[in-house]
Computed example of a mutant assay.
Amino acid sequence: MAFAAGAGPGSMAAPARRRCSATMGMLAAGMLAALGALQQNPAASLGGNGVDRRSFLRRGLQDLVRGLAGAVEQASLEAGRRLTGGGSYLRPPGALPEPAFLLACTRCRKCLEACGPGAIRLLGPEAGAAMGTPYIDPLGQPCTLCLECTRVCPEGALEALADPRRARMGTAVLEAARCWAHRGLVCDLCYARCPFPEEAIRMEGGVPSIRPEACTGCGQCVYVCPESPPAIRIVPAGAPGEA
């Protein structure tokens, strides 16, 4: 099959996936509307044992809508993984969930140009449909959470953040067996480098402890870890195993 310039199987499949998701979304919305009407008009003519039948129908609709919503979300995530070859990338702060990010990002490079520390890089052709989108490699240069990239993104692929603490790029994961401090050596480099010590990383009994709920995923801890490869890594937001 021949494709027009710039088109391909992936570009043809994307609209179909969006149409399918939109259809399922409209179906779910219709069911929610029907449920709302039923709740507002409990005297609706159902005949027989009306109360029991209404309760049964209400529960059934709620379960069905929840199931549809979960299916749409899972299908969207799976589509994103297929489009990127299954890769998980550490995105700049404020990034939308991966499938939405891939659709919103126009590959304009403005975030790259605004990144003073040079933390933002662009994915190459090996990333498939994610080619040209921004990512961060904390081993090369971690994010400093200046948030300039979120201010220049024209399409909202990177949402503006008023507070760097709200960034959730990923979560730090520590391999205690390889950590110098956990092996009895004196080391607190990750704690000292963390932009939010005592919030995201604490030292307890001379060893570091990650607080996932406060971790921004900036990668500063990875950058300074003296172990090779680092005993601490960042699991990108939305990736399997992310806290």
Rank of each mutant, 00 (worst) to 15 (best):
A79Y: 06
V224D: 01
M1A: 14
A37I: 11
N41S: 14
C221Y: 00
I120P: 00
Q39I: 15
V173K: 15
G118V: 07
R53Y: 07
A4P: 01
P229M: 03
E227T: 15
C146W: 02
A177F: 08
F101W: 06
C143N: 10
P240I: 09
E155A: 14
G80N: 01
E126Y: 01
L32A: 13
S45N: 12
L112P: 08
C111T: 05
C111E: 04
P125V: 14
Y223Q: 11
A29C: 03
E113F: 07
G87R: 13
Q74R: 14
R82K: 12
G86Q: 02
A100I: 03
V65W: 01
A239P: 11
P195F: 04
Q40E: 15
P125Q: 13
L174K: 00
M1P: 10
G116T: 15
W180T: 03
A71C: 06
G124S: 13
Y191M: 05
Y135N: 05
A69L: 14
T23R: 02
A243N: 13
S55H: 13
L139R: 14
A176D: 08
E98I: 06
P240E: 07
A130L: 09
E227G: 09
E113N: 11
G25V: 06
T150S: 07
G116V: 15
I136L: 01
A7F: 13
R107V: 06
L102Q: 15
C179H: 01
L32H: 03
L68Y: 04
A130Y: 02
G8V: 11
T23D: 11
R183C: 09
L68T: 08
A16P: 00
V51Q: 12
E242T: 15
A200P: 03
G80C: 03
A192G: 05
L158G: 00
V186S: 10
R193D: 04
Y89R: 12
L103D: 14
L61G: 06
R151C: 00
L64N: 05
Q74C: 07
G67I: 04
A44W: 09
V173H: 13
L161T: 12
G30H: 05
R59V: 07
C190M: 00
L103G: 07
T150P: 02
L145M: 06
P15W: 00
G241P: 08
M24C: 14
R183Q: 15
P226E: 03
V235N: 04
M26D: 07
L77D: 08
R82F: 06
P197Y: 03
G124L: 10
G48C: 09
R82E: 14
G170R: 13
A37D: 08
R109V: 15
G87A: 10
L189P: 00
C221N: 04
C111D: 07
M203K: 04
P125Y: 04
V72K: 02
F3W: 14
D163F: 08
L174N: 06
E199Q: 07
R166K: 14
L32F: 01
Q74N: 11
Q220T: 04
C115N: 09
A100F: 09
Q220P: 00
S76I: 01
P93Y: 01
R54G: 12
G50N: 12
M1E: 08
L158P: 06
P134H: 03
A200Q: 02
D188C: 09
C215M: 08
W180V: 03
V152I: 05
E159P: 00
G128Y: 12
A129P: 09
A176G: 10
G118Y: 06
G205Q: 01
L35M: 13
